[in-house]
Design a protein around this nucleic acid. Structure first.
Lengths: 218, 218
DNA sequence: TAATAAAATGACTATATAGTCATTTTAGAT
DNA sequence: ATCTAAAATGACTATATAGTCATTTTATTA
């Protein structure tokens, strides 16, 4: 947590420092990010940084927290309406909201990604953010099962992990195919395909000959 | 690629250098790995390092290549027998072979993971290794579809990506639940669950009342 | 206005890094 | 034994980093 001195700063300055941190972390990732560059970007003295924060990790955690709050603000409403819609419609809507947010705040997204994709960093720095994301999915899954959209016998925790992993993989797969520039409809079409895959699975449930004969009887 | 001088070295020294690199990369990851520490570990002069390699990335790529060769040696035979077994049996077998290899070479696995989980690094350094993994899965999928184990209408490239992502996520999920120490049967039980999820999907295909009535007629 | 406490500063220390290169060592050929 | 070319060396340069702290600036209170 930032020190008291940081919260006593005027909003403008506080935001300038946070922005500098966001720029630096988005450009270099966590490990190679440099406090010297951050203070230069923010136009504050080196000593001031250490009045406001314990160290680099302290600032980073704080930024992650801001980021988590933003995301929850965006995805909270989706969760509220989950009871009245098909599970997969809800998840699709969640993706849509996320991607629109990413398009507005690409830097924050890069930071969030860099954390989620690095287990070391995640363990060291993330603490409860990962669990928050899992819990969000768990809520959705519980509702989905209750609605009868999802199988009763799911390992819900595991399913939450799988959905979270796929959510992040989606961005990777998109980049690989379309390059770094995200376009909403193309992205959602990929999301649709991935959702469909996890929904009905990949195994061939080709009806047996006996089943086919029954169908023909209609 | 390492310089000629490196390949002229006696095997013992070459291995000492590679081992030093593996230790360093496994301990620190790519970015924070230090050439100074590597030469110290390997007990060679700084200048020698630059006779053997262009830079840190050069050594790293070389290690990744060794790693890829090892993995292919292990997983090649699995692919050969894929035609005669159910798709999911084959993938399960692949996981089993991989995990046994990991248990023998945990350092190499940590390096491989650190690459796969970091998109920046992957783009910069991996080049064809990711594509090799995707191609391996593509081969499996093609056989699986031909055998009738998998749906005809799959987007095979996408499915390969999903399977690869899940493969890596598996390790993460395992660590989170059981800690860093991997135990073969517990790991395979998790693998089984994940495979089952992707095989049949999560949507509830509860037969409708009309369908149930038909079934009762038998 | 004067006194005082909090905030801000940036030069400085100590340390680590990548990469270079003039010199020395080694090993093989004559 | 002598010569020669390749291999190995490690001190050195230039640069970057995190974190400190005595000093200065600012704002607030008396």
């Amino acid at each position: 947590m930032p020190r008291e001195a940081f919260f006593n700063l005027k909003t403008e300055k506080r935001e300038r420092i946070v922005d500098a941190g966001i720029d630096e972390f988005a450009e270099y990732g966590y490990q190679p990010a440099s406090i010297s560059r951050i203070v230069e970007r923010a136009d504050i003295a080196k000593g001031s940084f250490y009045h406001y924060f314990e160290d680099k990790k302290d600032l980073f955690k704080y930024i992650l927290q801001l980021l988590g709050d933003m995301k929850l603000k965006i995805l909270g409403p989706v969760l509220m309406e989950a009871g009245s819609r098909d599970f997969f419609d809800t998840v699709r809507d969640m993706y849509l909201n996320s991607i629109r947010w990413v398009l507005q705040e690409p830097k924050l997204m890069r930071i969030s990604q860099s954390v989620m994709l690095d287990r070391e960093l995640r363990n060291e720095v993330l603490e409860d953010n990962q669990q928050k994301a899992i819990n969000y999915y768990l809520s959705l899954i519980n509702i989905g099962v209750a609605r009868g959209d999802l199988r009763q016998d799911l390992d819900r925790e595991l399913t939450a992990h799988i959905l979270l992993v796929l959510q992040f993989a989606m961005v990777d797969i998109y980049y690989e195919k379309h390059g770094q520039e995200i376009e909403e409809t193309a992205f959602m079409s990929l999301a649709e395909k991935i959702l469909n895959t996890i929904a009905i699975g990949i195994r061939n449930n080709q009806p047996s000959r006996r089943e086919l004969l029954w169908t023909e009887k209609l």
